[in-house]
């Protein structure tokens, strides 16, 4: 059973041929980061429960996030959270009619993308030597 929809809509999803404007890139990353964070919530809850269970389990969790792979995963999650937050803030602005002009919307899109990457890059550099704080 399929949901009824207008079958006459144009349907073009060649991802290699579509060139997204910057607003579209920020928007799809908002969605992707949200989906990623949603899926990773149960495993994170597991890590949270371990961290509170015993000193040994706490050491396991903090050890994981200090390891090379865990550090990368932690940074990735932080980036997803920050990008999702900033992009959400931008959309909240649209809800109130703020920044809807084409130029301003492009500026805030670049700002969202850049700020999230810059802050996470900075945190990455700061935690590079001694692992996660």
């Amino acid at each position: 059973m399929s949901i009824r929809m207008n079958r006459q809509r144009p349907f073009f999803l060649n991802l290699l041929a579509i060139r997204l404007p910057i607003g579209g890139i920020v928007s799809i990353l908002h969605r992707a980061s949200g989906a990623g964070l949603s899926l990773v919530t149960p495993p994170l809850l597991f890590a949270f429960s371990l961290s509170l269970r015993s000193p040994e389990d706490y050491a396991t969790v903090s050890g994981f996030f200090s390891s090379g792979l865990g550090w990368l995963i932690g940074l990735g999650l932080l980036w997803a959270l920050l990008h999702h937050f900033l992009a959400g803030l931008r959309h909240l602005g649209f809800d109130f009619g703020l920044g809807e002009g084409r130029e301003r919307a492009r500026q805030t899109a670049w700002l969202t993308l850049g700020a999230a990457v810059a802050v996470i890059g900075l945190i990455g550099l700061m935690t590079l030597k001694g692992g996660a704080a």
């Binding site: 969605r31 989906a35 949603s38 919530t41």
Partner: peptide, 12 residues
Amino acid sequence: LLVHAWIGLREI
């Protein structure tokens, strides 16, 4: 968080 995640996934 869970409510937010569920509504977001629902959109997708």
